[in-house]
Design a protein around this nucleic acid. Structure first.
Lengths: 218, 218
DNA sequence: GCAAATTAATGATTTATTCAAG
DNA sequence: CTTGAATAAATCATTAATTTGC
């Protein structure tokens, strides 16, 4: 991995020679920085300027910058799609105890099963109480040692959420409800982690989250 | 270091008491093993399963697994980045073979160079000023004058960001150009981008594209 | 040897970005 | 243009290592 670095440098920065532009790390860093700053399709003027700055690190032309943005934007998009796709493949890895993500054959259907990661603002500090946070302890059931297998939808904690839905699970906990949607994402193509409270032990309510989503299909 | 295993177990496995999860060696081993197998961002289901397995060694909850992967991934990345960076600096210092990072008497350029060399992480500044930088005078054809250059803030921010995920990602990505694109974006929202041969002037224009955009000025 | 004191790791939270639906 | 969803980066906080004075 690292070896290439020198190669890159040799190839690009040092020698303008090559037929094709080979960006140096500095160039890439700057480009990515600009990208992160929001630049996606730089104007001609911007390209000129960027090119000028990048030239400090090696031979480069405006078209390279132009192409870089085009490609980078496209590939970021592509990458994201791939990652999402990868999600489904992930389940292949582990063996398992559990049924596939969306057990009923329905698989891909809209991600039904995904989970969303929902952060909650926990007030933090341990001792504080978390008033709003609901924690569900799933404990309720239990016993089977390995975890909570059952995933019923727990309620997402959060300020915003808590779901009432199905009370089934909630039997024990106390929470205040808020409103909201339950939600697991539902939508997207991807997986997520839904969390609210995984805490099993019940007692603690720290932060937390529960995975699993409560979505229908799942 | 290792002697503590028993201690660890007592602390974490044995007693859920502690405020914070303290993984046992076995737990860490398994987690690392999974990580090596490629797991980076386990899904909710995977987390459940992993948690279940780890529970055999001591108290643990899903969130701990979730956090572990988050942290481990981030820190591995960080470590690599550092290594890479160190390598890079070494290289810079040693060689004179190539044009120095800041070739032309670059006055201003220097900053950019320094930035690249120095930052590892940075404060993260946000991208707010994009707007400001958007248009700079530029007379484009000329080379770039320093002042305009300065308008693009180089935010330390991301400087070394490697994009996540395995491989490459952005770092290498980006450059193949293809002929393709010719069109000017014509994008609506933004101004059109026009660009002609930004590459310096005259000499080569291999590809050539004329972008032109629809914008008046162009 | 052994704690208090200090430093290094790393678990847990919070904040910023990113992409792309609505 | 706004907002949802997800994630990575940055940061906070606590535990384990270790150093140090006795």
């Amino acid at each position: 991995m690292n070896d290439n670095m020198s190669v890159d440098m040799l190839a690009s920065g040092g020698t303008p020679v090559g037929n094709r532009w080979n960006p140096t790390n500095e160039q890439i860093e700057l480009l990515e920085s600009l990208y992160r700053q929001g630049i996606r399709t730089p104007s001609a003027e911007q390209i000129q300027q960027i090119t000028g700055r990048l030239r400090a690190f090696g031979h480069i032309e405006g078209k390279n910058v132009f192409y870089w943005f085009q490609n980078h934007k496209a590939r970021q998009r592509q990458k994201q799609k791939q990652d999402k796709f990868a999600y489904f493949n992930r389940f292949l890895h582990r063996t398992s105890v559990f049924p596939p993500p969306c057990p009923n054959g329905g698989f891909k259907r809209r991600a039904a099963c995904d989970a969303a990661a929902v952060y909650i603002n926990a007030p933090t500090t341990h001792s504080q109480e978390i008033s709003n946070m609901v924690y569900v302890s799933s404990n309720a059931n239990k016993q089977f040692n390995q975890e909570t297998l059952n995933l019923f939808p727990l309620h997402p904690t959060g300020i915003l959420q808590e779901k009432t839905t199905t009370s089934s699970s909630s039997s024990t906990s106390a929470h205040h409800d808020q409103s909201s949607v339950t939600s697991c994402p539902s939508n997207s193509v991807e997986a997520a982690n839904c969390f609210t409270d995984l805490g099993i032990g019940g007692a603690d309510h720290r932060p937390v989250f529960n995975f699993l989503c409560g979505k229908g299909p799942c």
